[in-house]
Nucleic acid binder design. Sequence first.
DNA 1: AAGTGGTCTAGACCACATT
DNA 2: ATGTGGTCTAGACCACTTC
Lengths: 254, 254
Amino acid sequence: MGTTQLESVQEPKYWHLKTVLSEALDSEFSVGEILPNERDLAARFGVARATLRQALEQLELEGRLQRRRGVGTTVAPPRMGVSLGTGPHTWPGGSEDAWQPVDCTAAVPPPAVADALETGREEPVHIVRRSRVSHGRPVAAELLYIPQPSVPELSAGIEAPSGAAHARAVLRELQRLEPERQENAVELGSAGADEAKELDRLPGAPVLVVTTRFVAGGRAAALSVATYRADTCRLTFGDSEGVEIHAGMQGQAS
Amino acid sequence: MGTTQLESVQEPKYWHLKTVLSEALDSEFSVGEILPNERDLAARFGVARATLRQALEQLELEGRLQRRRGVGTTVAPPRMGVSLGTGPHTWPGGSEDAWQPVDCTAAVPPPAVADALETGREEPVHIVRRSRVSHGRPVAAELLYIPQPSVPELSAGIEAPSGAAHARAVLRELQRLEPERQENAVELGSAGADEAKELDRLPGAPVLVVTTRFVAGGRAAALSVATYRADTCRLTFGDSEGVEIHAGMQGQAS
DNA sequence: AAGTGGTCTAGACCACATT
DNA sequence: ATGTGGTCTAGACCACTTC
């Protein structure tokens, strides 16, 4: 990586820096390789550390870098494709289902969730926590809200076992319903303290929040709120999956 | 908004600040209202401006605030739901299609695009630029790559008219193909200088990049790379659209 | 103990929109 | 001309990982 000095331009330094680094990443580094530390890099480019960091943040947001406190900055692998399974017959607990139950509690959900489920705002629901792992790394954390009427066999024990076993039991019951369709939405969010820990990231890290409303018999049978790591994941849906489209497709032609 | 002083905690100041501001936003401000300027806010909370800005950046990322240079910081409206029309029969140029053609050129696409289209890496393709507007605001910019074989009638004129009229002609030709299916992916990106201008944002602003591969007759008929404003958009697919699910569904249940 | 990235400060100046 | 957010600096200290 040359000691390329920044020309005087009417373009923010951090932006130009990002471009230079991005090119260096393509040509002179390989995946997993560690970069020089921030103080050295800043000195090498003749900028303050804060400015250098602004460029690194951008590159991390784009999934090109990975930074870990106490360790260093490494070149990130291309984002992995993660299937959303958006067909009407891919329901929680199904066979393909890549999720792993963690535990299950019963509580009153946030108002927005209650509204989407069309339950009363004070009405407790089952809340199944699940996590999703891909290529050995945690990629997503989910909260699955299930109204009592969706799993009538379990309506009694509210102060239930609350472990992974109970979560599986709830999912099994949910399977008895006949899937009709699902409604999905994805938006940008930032990881809360809890999700951050589960995803092995710092609080505030960018995440893709996928909310799915499962409909059966004209009623909302369940609501899933899944938060995916935005730095490492490319969400696919509509029978893609392994398709080799990503990275480098942004930017104007010629 | 009270002059709540920050307690000494083992939590970053900007994080705590973000929480405080977020609550104030819910209770004491209404959509469109302008906040005090950054210098005043920083002073009021007893922190440096940079720290205050870190909190504001978070809130902007989550779509709660909108900041504009020379103007001020305002409370953002809830994100608008934007349909992705992911059905096999919603093709570019169709009836529902919310996109508006801008122009059309012919050029060699980026390598990653050529690979996805299964064309040669040196082979020029039609590139249709389109923009999408919702509620009077620009929400997305698209580059539609169309191989010559997909629109055989137009294969001759490479140095073509290049205006919106020509773009429409290309889309019209594309309609003659029989839609088979489409493969979609969404990931986080940052706006380039060009896209930023079109989306009325600063370069580097977070965007949701949706890549769609249209398949007809076993071949890739076209590839769309659409960048949506991540701050204002919630992408919906699988017959949602107007569903009132968003905001406030993140976060642990009591 | 040493080295890394993460947080924070108190300033300065710039680009932009409005008046 | 004024006021806004955007960029940049040169430091300091902290939290974390590794040795």
